[in-house]
Design a protein around this nucleic acid. Structure first.
Lengths: 341, 341
DNA sequence: CTCCTGGTTGGAACCGGTTTCAGAGCGTGC
DNA sequence: GCACGCTCTGAAACCGGTTCCAACCAGGAG
């Protein structure tokens, strides 16, 4: 009967017990060749008897790696960021890497996080979601040879995954135009601080371009900017819909904001889609519940793909600092229809 | 003009450059006493010139800590788990600890994750969300002196945070009874596998108890069990509502399921709350959008509190393996009203 | 002037693994 | 029967920090 080891066993304890050297134990642990079957048995027995578990900290130091992938993400703000993280988790789970979550939210927290990004000795590679790392951080990363992939952000020195926001904006807007709408409003975001990736602006551009191509004009006050929150979108929409000549359709830069628009419509007793059509962007989980017509972007897939690229890079492959564009799809549900006559 | 260091500088390079010993550099790095001001200046200068950043891996080995908190969570399944993680992130962000996310989903992944939990050499402490660690894992944790706090799960040897599910079930049910409902149905979950925490059952118990106290009977076929998903709840509700004497109110074990019930009602052309009242549980973000009456449980707060407890424990405090119960609150919105006459 | 005290300092041991390298043992080809 | 080559093995160096401990130094007390 073994007494339970009060102190954790080390590799040399195992070696002593098995009557071999530490090198041999290490070879057994790592499934290396050149260990006689009998020896391997003895080592395994010793490991079992001592309840030995190798210290990954020590292993990491020796190997010079952390076996950690850092995920830098504005975790709090958007449901879509969470969905991307899900994709990342899905891939990393099958790999040898752990996932370390670095949330960035408040401006000062953000700065801290990018210092973290400098102190990247805590991760072998970085996935940055919806954020643009400052130049200094990129240089540090390069100097330290820490691979980094951007998801939903752009950078000419790093591989990155984006969608065609302009095209998406056009997709949504054309759908409304095809239905016969002429008074179409857009609700997007104010340009964020320098570190946040501004996809709303490109969607605005797509919106305006589609209108122009159809020979329609962008009406005064029909392009509004707020924050990504539902509540703000709701009050902006309330204003917009209370106006004399109100729009017959609203395109929102995100599903979250589109929900705010739907709330405003409900408040005013407007029927959707009879009195008002609404299109969102993202296709987050709730969109299907709300019956929201939206531009679907592959959130989960973007996380998956980003993680795959990073793993390749961690595997020694040299990734070009290339843009990869994921495809969009219009999902028509029940919040859009012909304009009222 | 310094050439950029092609190889990362080590502490002994800094020491050499500053003309001091490594011990002194270490003292400066860690803000220790017993370093003369002039010496400190020289060391700091050398650090700056070499662009030195200490290796946290080496530091961890030396200190015997990882400075990582592991969060074990079924990240994929429920929006409520994400909200709890948000609370955890919020606390950990202000601490010196990094957060490592261990997702568990598929049954086999689950087993792997609890092996992970055994290989807890990757974290100094563990937060387990909505999961009950198997006995073997708990023993390992105790042997390895890894503190562990459970959030939304129960265990008599570990500190844990729960809500009063029975009470919550009663809260929701009494609300419906007070409105005059007598034919009230419940949609919950099938008992999950052994590792998942079963809160649905206690909510059922509360439901039945409230009915009994009001002198009402639990009708045949009015207690249904499915999965936590919206779609399954929707089809169960569809069945329930198509029956001859359909319920006038439904209490769902989660908001997600309640949304499924609302969909089913919409499909059948039933008005809510005129024809049917619906109550959920959790108060997730979308609940307010849907106007769902629900039992609010402090999801974010549970994460915060769990993380705080763990940090205390990591700080050397000895936590009792005590249950801590968070309070519930009925949030009345627009999906409940008096029954149709 | 000597002794003592307390602040500074650096050498070396240590954390727990991996890996290099040289050597031991043994079978085989000639 | 001998040299060669292959497999198996362990001592020791190494990864890059922290910290113990002894030594050094300066200033104040006696």
């Amino acid at each position: 009967m073994e007494a339970l080891p009060t102190q954790t066993a080390r590799i040399r304890d195992v070696a002593a017990r098995a009557g071999v050297g530490v090198a041999t134990v290490s070879r057994v642990l790592n499934g290396r060749d050149h260990v006689a079957a009998a020896t391997r048995e003895r080592v395994l027995a010793a490991i079992g008897e001592l309840g030995y578990r190798p210290s990954s900290i020590a292993r990491n130091l020796s190997l010079g790696r952390t076996r950690v992938v850092g995920v830098v993400v504005p975790f709090f703000t958007s449901p879509s960021a969470v969905e991307r993280v899900r994709g990342i988790v899905d891939v990393l789970n099958r790999s040898e890497y752990d996932l370390s979550l670095f949330d960035v939210e408040a401006p000062d927290r953000q700065r801290r996080a990018f210092e973290l990004l400098g102190r990247a000795d805590r991760a072998d590679g970085l996935l940055v979601v919806s954020l643009v790392p400052p130049a200094a951080a990129v240089e540090l990363l390069e100097a330290a040879r820490i691979p980094c992939v951007l998801v939903d952000a752009m950078h000419d020195r790093l591989p990155h995954l984006v969608i065609d926001d302009v095209g998406g904006g056009m997709l949504a807007t054309r759908h409304l135009i095809d239905l016969g709408h002429e008074r179409i409003a857009f609700i997007g975001d104010k340009p964020p601080d320098a570190y946040r990736f501004d996809s709303s602006r490109d969607r605005t551009i797509g919106f305006e371009q589609a209108l122009r191509e159809a020979g329609l004009q962008v009406r005064d006050g029909y392009v509004r900017e707020g924050t990504p929150s539902r509540h703000v979108a709701r009050s902006i929409a309330a204003e917009l819909l209370a106006a004399g000549e109100r729009p017959t359709a609203v395109f929102a830069a995100s599903d979250t904001q589109a929900l705010g628009v739907l709330e405003a419509a409900r408040d005013l007793g407007l029927r959707v889609p009879e009195d008002l059509s609404v299109v969102g962007f993202d296709d987050i989980e709730i969109a299907s519940y709300a019956g929201l017509t939206t531009v679907r972007q592959p959130l989960f897939e973007s996380g998956r793909r980003g993680a795959e690229l990073l793993l390749q890079s961690l595997d020694g492959e040299r990734l070009p600092a290339r843009k990869e564009t994921l495809s969009l799809e219009l999902v028509v549900r029940t919040t859009t229809g012909p304009p009222p006559r």
